[in-house]
Amino acid sequence: MIRLENVTKSYSEEVIALRDASFEVAKGEFVFLVGPSGSGKSTLLRLLNRQERPELGAVWVAGRNIVDMPANRVPMLRRNIGNVFQDYKLLLNKTVFENVAFALEVIGRPKHVITQQVPAVLELVGLAGKEDRFPDQLSGGEQQRVSVARAFVNRPLILIADEPTGNLDPATGEGIMRLLDRINATGTTVVMATHDQRIVDSMRKRVIQLDRGTIVRDQARGVYQ
């Protein structure tokens, strides 16, 4: 599903975010990216949805090298990749339903599809009955659930999550992880960057560890350290 071949990405001569990174992620896998701040986790995630392009190497997503993909094809790529962020990135002037529906609306899904898929995904993330609330009327955990619902509503092949539990208390974070695990169980590949040792240790999924842009460990059913 995802393959990086000798990828190097730098922001300047001094700031090298990734050095010669290579790994492969199979369809339906759940992978943690761990490492200290500045180790290149977020850059790696941004390479997967073509927010960034590497100087060297190839990034294969769903069978296509996306490094030289024409700009007009990038939206199609992104429709197959859901994104979950630490700060949720919800639209404060839209309700829960509208936030999730927005992801379908802007890619031209018809109304009957939206009215069918949005309630279903809100049910999945445990927000049924809260469709009409605005983000500031929800807890942090609930807001992150909306963010997950928005990322998953289009049934993407891949879901990338950048510190999704970073702003949440441990109990709420566990709830989000159970949700991501459930989404992974449907066949969606999940790649998640995190600092949360407790979560990584408890889930025992594959762990790729980065240090100053270099992959220093790639361990199946791994732990944080």
Binding site: N72, P75, N83, K89
Partner: peptide, 17 residues
Amino acid sequence: RREIEVMKLVGATDWFI
């Protein structure tokens, strides 16, 4: 800007935005 960022991430085309 936040809406535009989200739109781009979920796959809206530049023309649609």
